[in-house]
Amino acid sequence: MSAVADVRPEIEVVERPKTGLLLRMLQFSIRNPLGAAGALVIVIMFVMALLADFIAPYDPVANAFDRLHQPPSAENWFGTDQFGRDVFSRIVYGARTALLVGFVSSVVGATIGLVLGVASAYFGGRVDLIFQRVLDIFMAFPLIIMALAVIAIFGTGAQNVIIAITIPFIPRCARVVRSAALSIRELPYIDAARANGFSHSRIILRHMVPNVMAPFLIMITAFVGQAILLEASLSYLGLGVQEPTPAWGLMLQGGAEEYAESAPWIAIFPGIAISLAVFGFSLFGDAVRDELDPKLRSQ
């Protein structure tokens, strides 16, 4: 046996050219300017969320009844709302809510979907069939209605909004991952793992999951924008984050319509913030898809 091992050809180890992170980021932005623009928006959001205490000029929840409905000025860049709160400060702090809800719900939702989708493909047969029917049910259930029901059960507030948004993401990710995993199941190395007597969970987690990472990451980036949009919609309906927490959708709920004519800035700036954030995540998500899935690159 050892003689066989000895005749193995020498494998030449080619070192990957060392490129700095900065250089790679530059290459990415030349290849994909729109994606880079999206990434820039995301970075700005993160900076706003992390350094909100330093960036925001005012306390986002402090009422100032002597300064109601002030138009944008040097003191209040985006004006003040119906409680005299500084709109700019509330937008800066609102980035925290948006990112928290966006990331937690999409990562948790996609991860549960990943495990379920791969397991369904791996076991196949009746398990897969039943699982697919369950997915059908959840997919047919309108997203916002599911969210409404979850909020009605658990009550409003940030954690419950996250739960409400996470649940509908699970089947959507599971479906995509399942179809990717179906082709992997047929590959020889899975058979080899099975022949080695590895447990189901080990084969699923160690051998299959790493190979469906591309669709998984694509789903996550696509979900974050949607989650931010959904959170804004729920908060706008009064079913999401509650006052006085600074959140963009919530800012549009209170005074935005009532004072649309006399104080339009209350309605305009939070909407721009939501749109820009979702725009950024969509552009970045498209770029990630192009990078990870070469089949789609040319489109």
Binding site: L229, A232, Y236, L252, E257, A260, G271, S275, V278
Partner: peptide, 9 residues
């Protein structure tokens, strides 16, 4: 990206 309720407003 634009929330439809904001577009409505």
């Amino acid at each position: 990206a634009m929330p439809s309720f904001w577009l409505g407003i």
